[in-house]
Design a protein around this nucleic acid. Structure first.
Lengths: 285, 285
DNA sequence: CCGTCCTGTGAAGATCCCGTGACGCGGGCT
DNA sequence: AGCCCGCGTCACGGGATCTTCACAGGACGG
């Protein structure tokens, strides 16, 4: 009942096979032969690909949630440098490989300094381009590798990736796509404090502008739904001036009275994740 | 003797505030001319460099705490591939750039697949190698951010960067952001005396105006919280007219000496602190 | 021993940050 | 086309945090 068919649509066929988490690549080029060969090879590797129009703005790539981009600067003409700079600034986590015709050292250095991760001269062998793309996104994959697709249990809540939904006692929380992505990101971070900027980059895909409160708003929405479904537990903790941390902790109002040196409600299982919120103990004198 | 880093990294718009300190690079090559030119250029950029013998084993690089390595596979002869594979496996966080003579596509692909981050053909322009090194390190840094920085242990206190918090016996100290930044800076400086001006610049990002007592106030706050959570230890020591120094020391030496079985300050010693990665130089105005 | 400078301390005011409710926009579905 | 829903923005208010100030105790130099 709480399932949203529309929400899961965009990510449906993504994690079908466990070992290789398919990567998303976009290519901005004009050479149809190159595109054909590369496309076939990418498909064989199980990567999702997308051909970009030469008019695509760097900012428009954000919603595509790409892992890497291959771009021929020549296609962009004189605006290429500006395009590249804007791309690397707006999407700092994106892998950028420039694959273009002849170039000077100065040009290559300029491109790399602007934020490109690699620069390959055309004509190039598709296999080498693939290998360089892999090298560019390698670290990211390694970091995301430990993400098992198994459900996450914390306190009373169960987060199931396969359903794109969180449950409490079998009852769905009715989380929207972004809300789920947020709670999933927080929950898989194993109790670490995530900075707003980091959260924003992961969920929105591009740099956060100062004053943007989107993360806060979604944290509130998730908190509301968690509170409604699982009162008596606190899950998302605010770290003032930094960001948020996920840890299932029983809400124990008695703590507020203070005095006791050893609070430690110790509710069993959450003890691992929860390190007893620093907010509760240590009342000020 | 001023702060290194200078303006070497033009990587603006980078979320993190702290400018990257000097990088550590090692080079495994035999071409003396190449080494000389590259060395001069690296020095100008403020990077620490080190020439490796061709007999250096991949594992022996670990204690050097390098950011990246430049290697000419030709120097290693037939063992080059194995060497590269072992290096990339042993130090997955190390940036590896192969810079070698003519090569085939298959060789380049093989090298990249083994874990190399980039492959550059010799002869190459030093500037391009530098730019590619920067790109590799930049990419590595990006992914490093959310990593588990290993915690710092000193006396009874444990400083966890992933939580922006310090703990004593599992209990958080409830440090605010600035307080944490201060204790972290002091603790990672491992026993060195840090001038107020230096501390201020690192935490506030700009020069301190004369008469500003902010550093003192925050030192007091951190001391209070440390004292409350870990009485019996002194952590932050004042150096009159200079600044502060962090070192975990038992509060009362006589107590420690008298009670054989008592507190048993079998301290892990601040020795463990030494691994605190980047060196923080003592800078003066 | 004394004057001067430096640091420790407490508190008050200023500042910044976060939680919250409401609103408008745009896309998908009926 | 009209409606519903998810999403991003805005303004407001309450707190948490930071900065500043004044005073007191201690250190240093002569």
């Amino acid at each position: 009942m709480t399932e949203r068919s529309s929400a899961s649509e965009g990510v449906a066929g993504f994690g079908s096979t466990a070992p290789p988490p398919g990567l998303r690549i976009a290519i901005l080029d004009r050479d149809s032969g190159f595109l054909a060969v590369l496309g076939k090879r990418l498909e064989r590797a199980g990567w999702e690909q997308r051909i970009l129009a030469s008019t695509a703005s760097p900012e428009s790539l954000a919603p595509l949630r790409l892992n890497a981009v291959v771009v021929d600067l020549a296609v962009l003409g004189p605006h290429g440098w500006d395009w590249l700079a804007r791309l690397c600034q707006a999407l700092p986590d994106l892998g950028v490989v420039v694959c273009t015709g002849s170039s000077t050292v100065a040009q290559r250095v300029r491109g790399l300094r602007l934020g490109a991760d690699d620069w390959l001269a055309k004509p190039c062998h598709p296999e080498e381009l693939i290998a360089r793309l892999e090298a560019v996104v390698r670290r990211r994959r390694r970091m995301e590798a430990p993400r098992h697709h198994q459900p996450i249990q914390a306190g009373e809540v169960e987060i199931r990736r396969d359903r794109y939904q969180a449950f409490v006692a079998g009852h769905g929380l009715d989380l929207t796509r972004r809300e789920f992505e947020l709670i999933e990101l927080l929950a898989t971070s194993d109790g670490r404090v995530l900075e707003r900027e980091f959260i924003y980059r992961r969920l929105w895909g591009y740099s956060m502008v100062r004053g943007d409160r989107s993360v806060d708003v979604f944290v509130r929405k998730v908190r509301q739904k968690l509170e409604r479904a699982s009162p008596g537990w606190r899950y998302i903790h605010t770290h003032f001036g930094i960001g948020y941390r996920f840890a299932a902790e029983p809400a124990d109002p008695r703590e507020a009275a203070g005095g006791a040196s050893g609070p430690a409600p110790a509710v069993g299982e959450p003890a691992r994740l929860a390190d007893a919120g620093q907010k509760l103990e240590l009342a000020r004198a």
